[in-house]
């Protein structure tokens, strides 16, 4: 696979939120507004990028029996660095809203998932691109969700009024609303895929769980 496709796959074909369905917890919690989504996305992208590089560098030196604890330590170090840097240099407003979610990146399945499924098997450059792509895909998906939720709930996007002022539609600001918007997004994506398959004269088969995306059982990819 070319380097460019390694990056681009995270944006759409293997989008972590909309296709791999990883990292649902931060997705539901932080996508209540576009601004929070952007901040969380950038923080996660940085962690993914960093941890993917380091893990692919040390992948040969770490015995497979202790690889998961090692990955978690590496990821936790990056998350703490991001947290300290954000506290020091990010705008106070962003810190306040994201503060409680940043430590949660440690257990964000996307980060550990990419470490285990990709970075532990590929070279540094590919892993870095994979981390960046997945991070961007995560950010974009989160921002799209956040913008839709914020727009319908408050009539604003990035805290700027776009719809006439109305009584806030609270449901969409709560996690339940995130599930609903996410479901609509997924339905739309499936619709596009089915359309595409029909145009090509094939029947659409939903992607199944493949060892390329998971391999938590420890089996090698065939």
């Amino acid at each position: 696979m070319s380097y460019f496709r390694e990056f681009i796959k995270g944006l759409w074909r293997e989008n972590p939120v909309l296709v791999l369905m990883l990292g649902m917890c931060p997705t539901l919690a932080v996508s209540s507004s576009a601004k929070n989504a952007l901040g969380m996305g950038i923080a996660t992208t940085f962690v993914l990028f960093g941890s993917n590089i380091v893990i692919s560098l040390v992948r040969k030196g770490i015995p497979s029996k202790v690889r998961i604890p090692c990955y978690i330590v590496i990821i936790a170090v990056f998350v703490t660095i991001v947290e300290l840097l954000m506290k020091a240099y990010a705008p106070a407003e962003l810190n306040k809203t994201l503060g409680i979610y940043i430590p949660l990146i440690v257990v964000n399945c996307i980060v550990l998932g990419r470490a285990e499924a990709f970075a532990s098997k590929h070279g540094v450059f590919r892993s870095a691109l994979d981390g960046l792509g997945m991070g961007c895909g995560f950010t974009l998906a989160l921002m799209a969700l956040g913008a839709v939720r914020e727009c319908i709930a408050d009539g604003t996007i990035f805290e700027l009024q776009v719809l006439p002022e109305h009584e806030p539609f609270v449901l969409l600001k709560l996690p339940a609303g995130a599930f609903i918007v996410l479901a609509v997004f997924l339905a739309f994506m499936n619709y596009l895929k089915i359309k595409k398959a029909c145009r090509e004269g094939k029947t659409y088969t939903p992607p199944e769980l493949s060892c390329a995306n998971c391999n938590l059982c420890g089996k090698e990819e065939k």
């Binding site: 040390v58 030196g61 770490i62 015995p63 029996k65 202790v66 604890p69 090692c70 330590v73 590496i74 936790a76 170090v77 703490t80 660095i81 300290l84 840097l85 506290k87 020091a88 240099y89």
Partner: peptide, 29 residues
């Protein structure tokens, strides 16, 4: 012994990196 050594090494390097960042960001925070 190898398992302990490799995990310990990862932890040691990790904490070293963290102390550096912590000390550098303490004042800006």
């Amino acid at each position: 012994a190898k398992l302990i050594l490799s995990l310990g090494l990862v932890c040691a390097i990790g904490s070293l990196a963290l102390t550096q960042v912590y000390q550098r960001t303490k004042k800006p925070i």
